[in-house]
Nucleic acid binder design. Structure first.
Lengths: 354, 354
DNA sequence: TTGAAAGCGCTAACAT
DNA sequence: ATGTTAGCGCTTTCAA
């Protein structure tokens, strides 16, 4: 091999590769970026020079001229003092990932981004200051756009991002309209699916443990369930509101059992709470599904992790997250692309619990 | 307000601010970066101009000249076909976050980084191709360094990163030595703590459900437990190996019960498995802790999410993750900084289960 | 204390 | 098909 591949300290640059290959920087750039109109022979020479020098394009330099960071932000946004208190410095992040839901979102996003050699920057925004930080980050051009997952319908971040004219896509429809694309699930249909299944297996005194009712998803699942039950002759459905945590599912079930000991079916707002409910039912000597049938929501890891497989309404979170990333990519590449919403259909997954 | 603040399309630049403030780019840069030796009056004028123009420094430009991306990578690394099969496109990510452990790592890292206006780029590396991608990403200068959390002791990524001369810090000691700093827990001490507690409450026939034994942490917890038990007159301890999942905890407990029906105490390798074990114990009519005492490991959300609080060995994951980030920062700022390892002490947290 | 000017490494016209 | 050149927006000597 030739001798003076590296005459200066830093990482090899386009210039270095060009010198070794005996061509101009522009040609190397073309080869590296896969632009055609380059002589195959030269292409080969350049490729060899790239390997010889150990060249890797400098991202900052590229971003500077292309005006693309080649990065997107994945923002998990909540509202200060949401459900649990504001414990440690970043208990929020830990709390967020306590639900398998967010792991699936990450999986879906990463699955879409990875083939494109892109990786998400993870951000949490719970306080106004943190929201400002997210905004600043985006405005610096550190990321080309944002994928926003709000823990609450009233989250102010989407509106701020939209107002700043930054590309963004939301997971779930915001409580009040925002000119941003979003993906969502037909939650009401999910509730209906659960109701039909419960009725079909003979439940006559079904109840429901809902998610937080200030989250549109929680509301929609409830109303879908309630409407379908009413249509099937059960206009009154006992309701207890939970917080999507296992603990809250336990408490809700205990209360339900105390107030309605004859309950024979429960539709629970998510799988994590459903697990808690099952636990309490077991402790109270109720057999599942014979005495009480339980239908969860999400089809998350919680649905299959226990002994008893949970019958549940599947939410294709990974697909939804991937679609969210795809939409964002489109908005970034085509700023004038109109805002849209993509709504996925839920699906009943029957296992042992109902 | 004055008129021609924006004469060209793009985002405002230093130049724009300088024009509005009536000073040079250099001065604006100084003010923005908090360099002293700037006349207070001018400082004020610049600050006003920044607000007036809505200026935000362009990160790519800054990174290009400072040779700092101002970003770090948080890499979760596994080995292809680890425990569960290679299901969906990115089941790995979902699987990873199914354990509350990683959420806590994220929380700790974010907690440290946020005040420094930095956010982690999340990457998963399970296959050789994915490891190459991580390496490429780092070599491009897209991130200044990496925080690596390996799911297996034999993970090849740390060695690759070290060989490339890239700043990185590991969570947990690698199976074979690598010239990289790491943080870790004194796992053996944790096992000892569990043993002492079990013996102290009168357990005479304790058993253990371990984590995967190809993970150093799993091994160390076991040997610490076993040694301490032996020293206290119980040289033989029944062992079943689990995979850190709730399901595997259930299976392990069922087996333990079948083979050693008289077991009166169990040390379980992590809280998630411990939950599974408790579940099975309950189903088999064993009261906890009276018939069988259960000690978990981690003190994760799983320890407090159920009805019965889990007695467990606390691993201060958030603190460890924050320390990892701090070490990385030092390595980035001081490349010649010698490699170190910071070992945290476990702590027994007594709740109801033992 | 402030300004002028030289790049950082890359892409994209434009010229050849 | 290839090379030349002009910046992208910023920091940072070096002069003044």
């Amino acid at each position: 091999m030739s001798g003076d591949l590296r005459e200066h300290a830093g990482a090899p640059t386009l210039e270095d590769v060009a010198r070794v290959a005996g061509v101009s920087r522009a040609t190397v750039s073309r080869v590296v970026n896969g632009v055609r109109n380059v002589d195959p022979g030269i292409q080969e020479a350049v490729r060899r020079a790239v390997v010889a020098t150990g060249y890797a394009p400098n991202r900052a330099a590229r971003a500077l001229v292309t005006r693309r960071a080649g990065t997107i932000a994945l923002v998990v946004s909540g509202v200060d003092g949401g459900c649990a208190g504001h414990d440690g410095p970043d208990a929020f992040a830990a709390r967020v990932f306590a639900d398998p839901f967010f792991g699936r979102v990450v999986a879906g996003v990463v699955g879409f981004l990875r083939p494109r050699a892109t990786h998400p920057v993870l951000m949490f925004a719970e306080t106004p200051a943190e929201r400002e930080q997210v905004l600043g980050y985006l405005r610096q051009g550190s990321a080309d756009g944002a994928l926003i997952v709000s823990a609450h319908g009233e989250d102010p971040l989407p509106a701020l991002v939209a107002a700043a004219g930054l590309p963004a896509v939301l997971f779930a429809r915001p409580a009040r309209p925002v000119p941003l694309s979003h993906v969502d699930l037909a939650h009401a249909d999910g509730g209906r699916l659960a109701a039909e299944h419960l009725v079909a297996r003979g439940c006559r005194r079904a109840a429901t443990i809902t998610g937080p009712l200030d989250v549109p998803a929680g509301q929609d699942r409830l109303s879908g369930f309630r409407d379908a039950m009413a249509r099937r002759g059960q206009p009154y459905v006992p309701i207890v509101e939970g917080r999507f945590t296992q603990r809250s599912g336990e408490e809700a079930m205990a209360r339900l059992l105390a107030e309605h000991p004859d309950v024979d079916g429960v539709f629970v707002g998510n799988d994590v709470m459903a697990r808690g409910a099952c636990q309490v039912l077991g402790e109270h000597g109720r057999r599942i599904p014979d005495d009480v049938a339980v239908v969860g929501f999400d089809d998350s890891a919680a649905a299959t992790s226990g002994r008893l497989g949970l019958t549940t309404v599947r939410q294709p979170v990974e697909d939804m997250a991937a679609e969210m990333a795809r939409l964002l990519q489109e908005h970034i590449e085509t700023p004038e692309r109109p805002v849209t919403s993509v709504v996925f259909a839920p699906e009943l997954v029957v296992r042992e619990s109902a």
